[in-house]
Computed example of a mutant assay.
Amino acid sequence: MAQAKRSAVRRNYPSADTLGRPEGGWRLSLYRIMFEADCEAGRRFDQAVFVVILASLAVVMADSVEFLAQRYGRVFTYLEWTFTIIFTVEYVLRLLCVRNPWRYALSFYGVVDLLAFLPSYAALLLPNLTFLIGIRVLRLLRIFRVFKLRVFADEYAMLGRALRASARKTMVFLSVVLLIVLVMGTVMYVVEGPENGFTSIPTSVYWAISTIATVGFGDITPHTPLGRFVASVMMLLGWGILAVPTGIFTMEMTLAETARRRGQMRTCQVCMTPGQDQDANYCKHCGARMEGAQAG
Score class of each variant (00 low, 15 high):
224 T>P: 04
197 G>K: 04
164 R>P: 00
170 T>G: 09
220 I>S: 00
230 V>P: 04
174 L>T: 07
244 V>E: 03
202 P>E: 09
201 I>N: 12
239 W>Q: 11
170 T>A: 02
210 S>L: 12
247 G>L: 15
207 W>H: 06
233 V>Q: 01
202 P>K: 08
186 T>P: 00
190 V>K: 13
235 M>S: 13
237 L>S: 15
197 G>D: 10
244 V>H: 00
208 A>Q: 02
231 A>W: 01
164 R>A: 11
225 P>L: 04
174 L>K: 01
241 I>S: 09
185 G>Y: 04
226 L>E: 01
222 P>V: 06
243 A>M: 14
246 T>H: 06
209 I>N: 06
204 S>V: 06
167 A>G: 05
192 E>N: 04
172 V>A: 13
216 G>D: 14
171 M>G: 08
239 W>Y: 12
192 E>W: 03
246 T>L: 14
238 G>M: 03
188 M>A: 03
235 M>R: 03
234 M>I: 07
166 S>V: 06
220 I>C: 02
222 P>E: 01
241 I>D: 05
228 R>P: 01
164 R>H: 12
234 M>T: 01
208 A>P: 05
210 S>T: 15
186 T>L: 14
207 W>M: 05
213 A>R: 07
208 A>N: 04
199 T>P: 01
236 L>S: 08
224 T>S: 13
230 V>C: 07
238 G>E: 09
189 Y>K: 14
